[in-house]
Computed example of a mutant assay.
Amino acid sequence: MTEATAPHPVTFSALVQQFFTEYLVNQRAMSPRTIASYRDAMLLFLNFAQHRLGKMPTALNLADITPDLILAFLDYLEQQRHNAVRSRNLRLTALRAFLKYAARRDVSSFFVIEQALGIPMKRFERPMLGFLSREEMLAILGQPGETWTSQRDHLLLTLLYNTGARVSEIIGVKVGDVVMSVKRL
């Protein structure tokens, strides 16, 4: 290709738009909530970059998204906005998804993007999940009321407790799956 016929690199704003409209919606078929989360992360990042770099988001380019800028943004989320580590990591996930998409569209910025993608997720302490004692669970279950919905809810909660099944597994149970008698060996 000659210089006259070489394709022009995609602008940063066009990349952002394509990321949301083409990639997340059409190619990946992400849920509306995921897309909204990614949108919020991108808006926060673009506002932060505008204040930090003194550039309007429309004037940004991929070379501006350095590891230092991303790390400063992540610190801002934790220190100024008081985001938990999980929220910080979710914002980083959204930025990473965009950068991976952008790397495939603008190969000339691959080195800068590769550096930015090297930022690790922050580790955090997962809380120990508690559980209810048998007596506490029986107190919650109690006795079913007289109404059909009360009896239905009691049956579902008892089934969940006694089987240890997940809600998604209980939802999938069909009438034919229920065995009313117990065979003894």
Rank of each mutant, 00 (worst) to 15 (best):
V85E: 05
A94C: 08
F48L: 03
N61L: 00
D64R: 00
E78Q: 08
Y101D: 02
L185I: 01
E114R: 15
F110I: 13
D68Q: 06
L138I: 03
A103S: 15
H82D: 13
E114V: 01
W148Y: 13
L60K: 01
L185E: 07
F131E: 11
L132R: 12
A14G: 05
E3F: 01
S168E: 11
A14V: 10
A49M: 05
L157K: 04
T149S: 14
A14L: 14
G130W: 02
R126V: 12
A103C: 08
N47V: 02
L69R: 05
Q79H: 08
A29L: 02
A72C: 04
L138H: 02
L24Q: 02
F12S: 11
L160Y: 11
D177L: 00
Y38N: 04
T34F: 09
A165E: 05
R52S: 13
L160Q: 05
L99R: 08
V25F: 05
Q115E: 08
L92S: 11
Q79G: 01
H154F: 13
R81F: 10
Q143S: 11
G118D: 08
L160N: 03
E136Q: 14
S133R: 09
S31V: 03
Y38D: 08
R184K: 15
Q50I: 01
M1T: 10
A102F: 08
T11Y: 07
Y23M: 04
S31Y: 11
A41L: 06
H82V: 09
F45S: 09
N61C: 12
R52Y: 12
N61Y: 00
K174W: 04
R81H: 12
V175L: 14
P57H: 13
V16P: 00
L77G: 01
L15N: 03
H51L: 10
Q17S: 13
F110D: 11
K174H: 14
S13R: 00
W148D: 12
Q115P: 00
S168Q: 13
L138A: 04
Q27T: 07
L138W: 04
F98E: 09
E78Y: 02
I65L: 14
L141S: 06
I113F: 02
M180G: 07
I65A: 06
T21G: 02
Y38P: 00
I65Q: 02
H82W: 03
A63V: 05
R184F: 03
P32E: 11
V112I: 09
G118N: 09
S37F: 07
P67Q: 11
E135H: 03
Q17D: 15
I65Y: 10
R104K: 10
Y161A: 08
H154C: 03
E146R: 08
R96L: 07
V175M: 14
R126N: 06
L159I: 07
Q143Y: 06
M1E: 12
P7W: 13
V173N: 07
T58Y: 05
L155T: 15
